[in-house]
């Protein structure tokens, strides 16, 4: 390749990258107006323990006939969060009257992990991703584990939706995050979609009810990245003026 052509090509690529990167820093356009009857797909990351309890308290409040299909993203091995998600769905669903049917249908969904199939059958699915860092894991082992976790998030957030439908639907139209660790890798995967102009979930972060005077580490990291950032204490709102405060949410 001749030198001027190469130079022009590199310049074009650089400009494109800069433009795309710059576009990431702009506020996202508002969501299109929806009619009240139009459904909206929804995903939530259940970060185990108190994170899961708070996330499910938020989800429990939602109108399930509007927000479906629902995807519960859990960390590998977090069977307690999986069970709590199933319990919530069962308590909100008529299927709870037929426990045997429910169990079989859900076992099928969980083994296939196919979101489209899940939405057709039960309107929710559990999605398992590897942990970014295991408890008691040595710090040296963290980078590979985090990369593996990120790869899995990218697979589910970026690649799978592309393969499934061409390029029309993201994993979900909105993704609720409330910490810890893995929710950052999910957020990064969503940003890869945005960088390439692919549909990306809108990102909503809700800081824990337990955080009164200081943001959690997840909160600090995700605050500049998410579309909505909510805190549950006015004290924290003062500290972090970009945050929204709507009273206690859980």
């Amino acid at each position: 390749m001749e030198y001027p052509t190469f130079l022009l090509l590199s310049l074009a690529v650089t400009l494109l990258l800069v433009r795309r990167t710059y576009s990431l820093t702009l506020p996202r356009p508002e969501a299109k107006r929806r009619s009240p009857s139009e459904p909206c797909s929804f995903a939530v990351f259940l970060g185990s323990g108190g994170h899961t309890s708070e996330a499910l308290a938020l989800v429990a409040a939602l109108d399930f006939s509007r927000y479906y299909p629902r995807t519960y993203i859990i960390s590998e091995g977090d069977s307690l969060s999986a069970q709590k998600a199933r319990d919530l769905e069962a308590s909100k669903s008529k299927i709870a009257e037929f426990p045997d049917v429910r169990t079989d249908a859900y076992r099928l969904l969980e083994t296939t992990g196919d979101v489209s199939q899940a939405s057709a059958a039960a309107q929710y699915t559990l999605l398992t991703i590897p942990r970014a860092r295991r408890v008691h894991q040595s710090l040296l082992a963290t980078p590979p584990a985090a990369l593996y976790s990120l790869a899995s998030c990218i697979y589910h957030v970026t690649i799978l939706p592309l393969m499934r439908t061409g390029r029309s639907t993201p994993l979900a139209e909105v993704l609720l995050l409330n910490g810890p660790g893995t929710c950052l890798t999910l957020c990064m995967a969503a940003y890869i979609n945005r960088f390439f102009g692919l549909p990306s979930p809108r990102l909503i972060y809700v800081e824990s009810f337990a955080r009164v005077q200081s943001l959690s580490l997840s909160g600090k990291l995700l605050r500049p990245l998410v579309d909505r950032f909510l805190v549950q204490w006015p004290e924290l709102r003062k500290l972090c003026p970009q945050a929204e405060y709507r009273g206690w949410l859980v």
Partner: peptide, 19 residues
Amino acid sequence: FPALDGSRFQAVLDEEMGY
């Protein structure tokens, strides 16, 4: 202590998603 007011989060989400 006030009861859980689920309408608050639902309102945030409805707002964000264009409802």
